[in-house]
Design a protein around this nucleic acid. Structure first.
Length: 369
RNA sequence: GGGGGCGUGGUGUAGCUUGGUUUAACACACUGGCCUGUCAAGCCAGAGAUCGCGGGUUCAAAUCCCGUCGCUCCCG
């Protein structure tokens, strides 16, 4: 089952509070979904994620298909059971991997042929098999197979990718057998306004329970992304969730929420964490920097997460410098808390009818940093 | 006392035999930056040694020769 309703609409912006109901419970939007690409949010346990406030996590069809493989997932009775996460899961289709692992893929209209990055074995994924795999994984929200293109890129190529994604989307929808999973369509079109419109309108014609916007944050300038995103949203129905794929830096989050985006995912908070990047209310810092050698203050003086309450910068810097895993855990913990807190503050502001002021203050602060 | 080996950036090494692609290379450490549907405990960049010291041979020496100091191993 999947149900989405808009509970509150902001008066001055297009921001909104929504409620999504899935087979594994309810979550409120806007929501940030941490990445559990291979069936784990790197370094963190499901119990810890719940404490941090994560409500939905993201698995990846391509990676889980290769390892542990569908036989294992089938016997484990699905990904939820396998990884001990009983809240909602969204699985991405693997479309992004066609883009990010480009050299190992060959695309044609039928599907995608690729060589396993693990053992070099040959595989063929089609819209149909991608749905089959996601039905075995059993996520609450699943994604169509799409073709994400790089930026900048030739318009003719984008048009082909848009048309192919539309074709694949229709085939995914047709292939779907299980009824308790929400299959989301994906709008592509790179930075071409007319192609975004075409992609959005045709995808909406296929009638999905939710719509994602793919192909953003692939290297284009910030203003260009929002310039294309805003008008594209006009072609998506207001009563369905909108998911901006791959975007997760804090200012873009708030800005996108004001345009009516409901869902986000991003590798940034957790990946940055493992490399010493710390999100703080006073801007981004790199905990590896020498100036934190004897800094015994918390990562973020204005944060009250478990990590900031109990550990200091000097210690975490030390852990990272000597290669201790706890550093990655503590930093991932903090960064995810930071992003989820921003979402929570945003939601409070919408509920208090003060979102517009909140947004302006937030973006001004980010600009000054 | 006799004989051998070794001394090159912070650390560990390469180069030396057959002097000249050496503006001395590499790893780690160090300094900074990057990371946006995660092949990412990753990637990029930077600083840092005139080759133990002195002399000699040569157009040219980290590289060959002599001396010297230090460390080290073996014999006594």
């Amino acid at each position: 089952m999947f149900k989405f309703e808009v509970l509150i609409e902001d008066k001055k912006t297009k921001a909104r509070i929504g409620k999504a109901t899935t087979s594994h419970g309810v979550f409120e939007t806007p929501v940030f979904m941490p990445l559990a690409t291979k069936g784990v949010v790197k370094t963190l346990s499901p119990e810890e994620l719940k404490e941090i406030g994560a409500e939905v996590i993201l698995g990846n069809t391509y990676h889980l298909y290769l390892r542990p493989g569908m036989e294992v997932i089938r016997e484990a009775k699905g990904l939820h059971n396998f990884m001990h996460w009983d809240l909602p899961i969204l699985t991405d289709s693997g479309g992004f991997q066609i883009f990010s692992l480009g050299e190992t893929f060959k695309i044609n209209d039928h599907g995608v042929e690729f060589k396993s990055i693990i053992d070099g074995s040959r595989h063929f994924l089609t819209p149909e098999t991608v749905i089959e795999v996601q039905e075995i994984l059993g996520a609450d929200i699943i994604m169509v197979l799409d073709e994400c293109v790089p930026y900048p890129v030739d318009k003719k190529y984008v048009q082909e990718a848009v048309l192919r994604t539309l074709d694949w989307s229709a085939r995914c929808k047709k292939a779907q057998k299980r009824e308790n999973q929400a299959l989301f369509g994906i709008v592509q079109g790179s930075m071409y306004q007319d192609l975004r419109r075409l992609s959005a309108e045709k995808t909406v014609e296929l009638d999905f329970p939710g719509y994602a916007l793919g192909g953003f944050s692939v290297g284009e300038p910030h203003d260009l992304m929002f310039g294309v995103l805003e008008p594209t949203l006009n072609y998506l129905p207001g009563n369905k969730p909108r998911y901006l794929m791959g975007v997760g830096n804090s200012s873009s989050l708030v800005e996108a929420i004001s345009l009516g985006i409901d869902m986000f995912d991003c590798a940034l908070p957790t990946r940055m964490a493992r490399n010493g990047g710390v999100l703080t209310s006073e801007g981004r810092i790199n905990i590896r920097n020498a100036k934190y050698l004897k800094d015994f203050s918390p990562l973020d003086p204005n944060c009250c997460c478990y990590v900031c309450k109990n550990y200091n910068r000097a210690y975490i810097r030390h852990l990272l410098n000597v290669g201790e895993i706890l550093a990655h855990r503590l930093l991932s913990w903090h960064n995810l808390t930071y992003i989820i807190n921003i979402i929570n503050e945003t939601k409070s502001a919408i509920k208090n009818d003060s979102f517009s002021d909140f947004k302006n203050a937030f973006l001004r602060k980010e600009c000054n940093e």
